[in-house]
Design a protein around this nucleic acid. Structure first.
Lengths: 247, 247
DNA sequence: GTCTATAAAGGGATAGAC
DNA sequence: GTCTATCCCTTTATAGAC
């Protein structure tokens, strides 16, 4: 049996949740965080990131721009929330897929494909994410310390895809990073892909993962042990494999 | 002997050059393009890209912001000019270096190092270049069609470094692209490098190029011919090797 | 024709009232 | 939490100086 205080905490949490729902209904017509988020993303999709202004978002909800600023630090912060959302939806789809698919090459390819399915109509929104990539100290940079959790989660998906694969432990420790880096490359390629339905990116993914599994087979060869060891040490020493974020 | 028209073209080019020098002297004291450019870069360095405003740049020259807009399409366009400048200075240094250095691994490493020497104190300016990377249709994106020439020039330096190396022709055709991609990675690593004097990036370059030449030796092995062929075809079909820009 | 100044549009972000 | 008012920024329009 749980001690009495567990019950207490749970009711507190529950009532806070109900209170929030209640509040949302009370302030109907006004903007809640979720409403602002959804309106913003819709307008970004419809008009493009730059042409959808914060004033537009506020007006759409019958209010002022500054309402949005209460919930979001900046316009770009909304996009970061979007990427968070994408990551969560991606995780659900990938976990489902990994239950079914057992072929290593296809498991990896599908991780890329499922992300593209989510982002298919949001390439312009995605592009806005790159805006702060060049500012190491910005919270909005997706290479910054602040967004470490997001990167960890993305790499964890590749780690899951590799489970059960016949690979030495040392290679398993660096592959999620390499596959994630490749994924960043795929997304950049996707962003610039002018082919109908971005079919070039789709083909790139399939051929690329086939090639990658070919490399893995070769890399396991005992003759290549020295250079494999050097490579793995190089990657470890680069510092790019981040410690898991503190809880 | 050169035909007569080579002479004609040369004098035309030369006289245009002299005319430009002359014009620069004529407008001395006024805010010329070069003055605006240099003031802008200096302010970007001193205050950061965002905190140095176009008004500041104009004021510094005793004028208004719009003076700068006559010469530069936008604030960011100044940074693109800066990168153009960096590329030219890099070419000079690399060509000098390649005259002296004959070891393949060090030739490649030095290309990276020399770029870092130029950019050493301008990491914040560099970061601003990433701002438009997510907008494929922007002229300011350094992955766009408009900046193709800049990428070509950068890859050409790696191609020069590979001259005389004992490598099959098929590998030579894709290596400049791969080395340039690695260079982009180096620059991103450099941008985020918090170690004193960015010594981590320097070490990464040296170990990375050593590793790369190791890979090249391995890749030449006849046993790996099939996978090497597949890899090269993959890269060619990716479409990332651009045609040389039209003249 | 080449350049510069003034004015203002329009956007992101903030302060403080309520 | 949301509003109005406001600040400061980039960028454009336009008039006119050299």
């Amino acid at each position: 049996m749980s001690p009495w205080w567990v019950f207490t905490v749970d009711t507190n949490t529950a009532s806070r949740y109900i209170l929030n729902m209640f509040k949302e209904h009370l302030t109907k017509g006004k903007a809640s965080r979720a409403q602002i988020y959804e309106t913003a993303i819709r307008l970004f999709r419809e008009r493009g990131f730059d042409d959808a202004t914060m004033r537009d978002i506020g007006a759409e909800l019958g209010g002022a721009a500054s309402a949005a600023y209460y919930y979001f630090k900046s316009k770009d912060a909304i996009v970061l929330d979007y990427y968070d959302d994408v990551q969560r939806r991606h995780e659900v789809l990938v976990n489902e897929m990994l239950e079914q698919e057992k072929d290593l090459s296809r498991r990896i390819a599908q991780i890329h494909h499922l992300k593209l399915d989510i982002l298919k109509h949001d390439r312009r929104i995605m592009g806005a994410l790159l805006r702060y990539a060049g500012e190491p100290d910005s919270e909005l940079s997706f290479f910054s310390v602040k967004t470490s959790g997001l990167r960890q989660a993305a790499m964890a998906l590749f780690a899951r895809a590799l489970e059960g694969a016949d690979l030495p432990a040392d290679m398993l420790s660096v592959l999620p990073l390499l596959l994630w880096a490749a994924h960043m490359g795929v997304l950049l390629y996707f962003l610039y892909d002018k082919s109908p339905n971005q079919k070039n990116t789709r083909a790139l993914i399939d051929r690329g993962t086939q090639l990658m599994t070919g490399f893995l087979k070769v890399a396991k060869n005992p003759l290549l042990r020295p250079i494999r060891k050097r490579t793995l040490e190089f990657i470890h020493d680069s510092g790019l494999i981040e410690a898991a974020p503190a809880h």
